[in-house]
Design a protein around this nucleic acid. Sequence first.
DNA 1: CCGTAGGGATTGTTCAACAATCCTGCAATC
DNA 2: GATTGCAGGATTGTTGAACAATCCCTACGG
Lengths: 240, 240
Amino acid sequence: MPTSELDPLLTSLADARRARRTVMSTSADRAARLLREQVVEGALTSGTRLPEVRLAEALGVSRNTLREALSQLVAERVLRREEHRGVVVATPSVDDVHDVYAARRIIEPAAVQHGVAHDPEHLDALELAVREGHAAAASHDWRGVASANQHFHRAVVGLAGSARLDAQMDLLLAEMRLFFNQMPDPEPFHTPYLDENAIIAAHLRSGRRAEAATRLASYLRTAEEQLALAFTTGGATRGR
Amino acid sequence: MPTSELDPLLTSLADARRARRTVMSTSADRAARLLREQVVEGALTSGTRLPEVRLAEALGVSRNTLREALSQLVAERVLRREEHRGVVVATPSVDDVHDVYAARRIIEPAAVQHGVAHDPEHLDALELAVREGHAAAASHDWRGVASANQHFHRAVVGLAGSARLDAQMDLLLAEMRLFFNQMPDPEPFHTPYLDENAIIAAHLRSGRRAEAATRLASYLRTAEEQLALAFTTGGATRGR
DNA sequence: CCGTAGGGATTGTTCAACAATCCTGCAATC
DNA sequence: GATTGCAGGATTGTTGAACAATCCCTACGG
């Protein structure tokens, strides 16, 4: 290939173009992103039905493109489609809690112990999430603590160095938000794990992977128990 | 609840109804399932564009419902959408190979070692896949060997006991099919791993999880190298 | 050889419609 | 009084046609 010098320029332009694309994107994608955001942020509590016509005009798109967005979100498990009854925000049960944690207990400790991307960049992301969590806790912002916690676990999976695994983890974390939004009193659930995160990050910074992995594993076990307990006893507000 | 005796009948009916729903399903879902099948079975080689009009009339659905199906499949990464250019069967690169294997190297050994569903049922599934592979090899059906291999690894992940992880693994295995379909000579790639599968299954039947996990880990490492090698030197037929 | 204008094809998106299905309320019945 | 039957309305599933925006290719001109 004789063309040599301008190659970097070409690729950078292609990148920019792709970036603008992802910013602009299509109407369906934009609608999907908005809806996903609303669901994950808890603005739409689980179980609420989403009528297509109202939703479409609220988003300023036609019903058909809205349905494309909905298909996308249903495939991501963020929404559930019940035939001829409409799409609803998923209403997870305690079984879903166990299923999600079964997956997390497999993925996260393994990423810590056998990940191939334990570079400074990812370790920085871990510690950044820890600091973010402490800051949010200082101002009694439990929602911020929850966000920071999720950022921490996303960073944990990032250590594996697989974009596909990262995407999968994002889906799992989105479902976690649904769990939280369904709990009666989510606040005390998050704070205890702040210190645990800090310890794990420190272990990893020093290269003590095994310790970090076992710590994370037991961490996840207790978190699962607590969450399941809150679901059964606390009478999580099931969909009517 | 005083109503007691007919409760089982009620639940069984509800189950049947749900089952029929998943069988019949909607047009969009059916189209999506057909397309996914075609892609995974290798009938549609990677890189081929899928024009909406022709595809729609081939499937006997309108363009709008087809687009719903396509949105679904794009969300599943089975297809890739390039704006204003159409959806194409994903054309994986070497980077994708490494990414997929990074995920598998995290998930599979961990499922073997720390899975919570090592019950007879799942172990039977493992051994069934082993036998299926040997049978296919006996009749020199390399495609059958590949299928059996995938069934084996799906069963491995099944040991984790997480439906979500299973679904994720199905996606990864579908991408593996794309890799194979792109290789010039896939036959000799699959057969060497038959014995390896048998050994791992035997280890697990005897409860020797650690041995099975390490064996599987090194297995995946060499498989990744071989596949990457075939991609770079073999001149995998990139999109025209 | 390089750029460029034009035309055809394909995608993104909307609108309007219709059948099928679901939900709600009310009347009729045992 | 609770259940059944039955309209009527609302919502979903699906279609067909249309149009602008964009891409791809080709032929033309410098």
